[in-house]
Computed example of a mutant assay.
Amino acid sequence: MSTPHRYSDTVQTVLDALDGGIAPDRLALRDAVRELLADLRSRVPGRSVEVRVPPYGAIQCVEGPRHTRGTPPNVVETDPATWLEIATGRKTWHEAVSTGKIRASGVRADLSAYLPL
């Protein structure tokens, strides 16, 4: 499957490891997750959805009512490998949700319109 654009060397190295069934270097995985989260935040600015990829990062994105205290009403949470798969188009949003790889709650928590990056 071809990627929609050229990813950084860090992201590509992690994707190659995952594609090969090899556990990627932990620091490279962290950096790749953070890079793609930052890309999503810059493409879809806002503060109505919190996207969590523990233990590496969390961002707020998507226009709409701003969340300021307590648990956000719109939350997306997934593991690092799944985040890389959906952010780069190796897996669709709907595939990941239907298999339980993404937990999404709230009316604005569907990010399928913004992915892959």
Score class of each variant (00 low, 15 high):
22 I>E: 14
112 S>G: 15
54 P>T: 02
110 D>R: 03
12 Q>F: 14
9 D>Y: 04
115 L>M: 04
38 A>V: 03
67 H>G: 08
36 L>T: 06
61 C>F: 05
64 G>R: 08
36 L>G: 00
63 E>D: 15
93 W>H: 02
49 V>C: 06
50 E>F: 03
54 P>D: 07
95 E>D: 09
15 L>P: 12
65 P>V: 13
117 L>F: 14
75 V>L: 13
1 M>G: 12
25 D>A: 07
34 R>Y: 09
109 A>S: 15
77 E>T: 15
82 T>L: 04
37 L>Q: 05
84 L>C: 10
14 V>N: 12
80 P>I: 01
44 V>D: 05
108 R>S: 04
102 I>R: 00
11 V>F: 14
116 P>I: 05
81 A>V: 06
11 V>R: 14
41 R>F: 00
20 G>L: 10
16 D>W: 10
34 R>H: 13
7 Y>V: 04
68 T>Q: 10
82 T>N: 05
85 E>C: 06
8 S>R: 03
92 T>N: 05
14 V>F: 13
73 P>Y: 14
4 P>A: 07
83 W>R: 04
87 A>I: 01
1 M>S: 13
90 R>P: 07
39 D>A: 11
27 L>V: 12
5 H>F: 11
96 A>F: 03
78 T>L: 14
106 G>D: 00
77 E>A: 14
85 E>I: 00
